[in-house]
Design a protein around this nucleic acid. Structure first.
Lengths: 330, 330
DNA sequence: GTGAAAGCGCTAACAT
DNA sequence: ATGTTAGCGCTTTCAC
């Protein structure tokens, strides 16, 4: 059943050359005399020899694998990140070692530490505070963070969160809305930035942002939070949600509660997930180029691996996508 | 910068024992005298020693890694599969080596062959015909297929596709529809089964299924196909789509073309992706338990790795989910 | 309970 | 252009 695979030594013996020659041949390290090359090619073919990547890695210290840890693959934002990262990795003959931490903070660190030993570099999305990320520097492996790291010298990619919500607030103000609420996700590191952006924009018009929390970055959480926001005191005319999933859930529940969308309440998300286009009403959101983020993160990492130097924090420009979930007041 | 990690020899030397003892200690292979155990624990801690998984793998022949190749991570069905597989893998201390082949058939085989060398086993989703899957048997690694394999002795998990579309057709018939179309994806291996299920159901009422093709399993493809289906001759009263994404796109475009949904046309998908709940109208579909599929595939594979024997083809029961995209005729 | 020694399959000097 | 040799970091007999 389990016939042992031929080793480089088997090939060498069968072809009547040394193992070094075989090694050089499969690595295309040099040119060979015609007879040797032909013989080698034939024997490798005949034996069905495939070089053992583990043994090679042990010597070269390269695994041609990149570790990618994300918070939740079900979130279309992360799905896109993975997609982008995978594409670039494949182009450069790297493979992804994926870990979905399932929003479980406790697991993250051990998981990443174990992962670090099996890869050439890591792309990490984490909810841990910057201070708790110190240990990543001791991984001895290049890391690219999927969010801005303020204090740590770790290259990272992200978007300008403050600008994103500023844009949304501006858009809603221009539609005549005054009572604007934010339905956030306090656990996210970037939640504060998003609050700040919207708050600042409203402040310029002498208005205040009413802040709520959804406790999870999911559609279910958005549904659950809806009645609390819409049927509490001081009902908002417009709601900026932490992300598209929360917004989608919020809209569904709002409709179920009898509100007309967007007449009774305007709703926005952030991320521009593909399904915002197909919701009822279609979702006004901010595109953050998730897939490009994945691509860039991978490119930065490969650059680091190739001896490039830390390229710092890269940021994508957020772009407002206006659809049907926001409308003029009244 | 790049201080070399301590090896097992460093630990042995520092602790004044042999490498064999250290090896046994980290593998918890036996009991030790108190002083040795204490010394070892202290030294490992002090040196920050971590066993090198590559070196270990080379000897044991186990990588504790499972290769997972899918057709497109952007498709929520596959996202869920990955989610489920990842969860079970993590529970058993395995990690996923993920490859998104991006619906590119040509890449698949070399990608999988390369992957096979770096993992203990594989879970594969492929569009290649069964006959072209022969080589997988020569991988010398256990494989679980994410669809039924009729001819090959490869364990697999999937759903009863014929039943799924039979159910949908039955549902539409019971609503009084007579002109029913199928908007499929001919490249998929399972497309024929789905056609057969619906056809058979209609045949019992003396009706014929009109078959169209969307040429891709995506929402965009669904949009593109819509006018062809709806504005050609013999306009259907109901459309069964190959999957939810196509259905979502189809519905959006149908609305854009001026059709009222579901009054003018009933639409169904298959997969029960999370976003079918948030579309307008919400999508009638068939739940195929994508996440459970991923979990089961992984469980089967781990079972195989643990010496279990080929458990054949496992199938999930499809379940009809009726929402608002289908309604009585008229 | 602990250690010495023989590799796992391969690459990387360094010969020739 | 090809061969010899010395390991990479670890596990695994098999002694003691």
């Amino acid at each position: 059943m389990k016939k042992p695979s031929p080793t480089i030594r088997d090939v060498a013996a069968a072809a009547g050359v040394s193992v070094a020659t075989v090694s050089k041949y499969i690595n295309g390290a040099q040119r060979f005399s015609a007879p040797v090359e032909a013989k080698l090619k034939a024997t490798i073919e005949k034996l069905g020899y495939r070089s053992n990547p583990l043994a090679r890695s042990m010597i070269t210290g390269q695994t041609r694998t990149i570790g990618l840890t994300i918070l939740d693959i079900s979130n279309p934002h992360f799905t896109s990140v993975v997609k982008g990262a995978n594409r670039v990795a494949l182009q450069h003959d790297y493979t992804l070692l994926l870990v979905d931490a399932e929003e479980n903070q406790a697991r993250e660190r051990p998981l990443i530490e174990a992962l670090a030993q099996r890869v050439d570099g890591l792309i990490v999305s984490s909810r841990m505070p910057d201070e708790a990320l110190q240990w990543m520097l001791e991984l001895n492996k290049p890391v690219v963070l999927l969010r801005r790291s303020q204090q740590l010298p770790i290259p990272s990619v992200g978007i300008d969160n403050q600008l994103a919500t500023y844009m949304l607030a501006q858009h809603l103000l221009s539609q005549g809305h005054r009572r604007i609420a934010y339905l956030g996700f306090g656990q996210a590191r970037i939640n504060d930035e998003r609050i700040r952006g919207a708050s600042e924009c409203l402040a310029r018009s002498g208005l205040t942002l009413e802040v709520h929390d959804a406790y999870a970055p999911t559609a279910q959480a958005g549904e659950r939070a809806c009645s609390r926001v819409m049927l509490g005191q001081n009902r908002p005319e417009a709601v900026i949600c932490y992300n598209d999933l929360i917004a989608l859930g919020f809209m569904k529940e709002a409709a179920a509660l009898g509100f007309r969308l967007p007449q009774d309440v305007s709703v926005t998300g952030i991320d521009n997930v593909p399904y915002g286009e197909y919701s009822a009403p279609s979702l006004t959101t901010v595109d953050i180029q998730s897939e490009k983020m994945g691509e860039l993160a991978m490119r930065k990492l490969l650059d680091l691996l190739g001896g490039g130097s830390d390229s710092g924090y890269a940021t994508f420009e957020p772009r407002l996508i206006v659809r049907e979930s926001t409308a003029r007041r009244g």
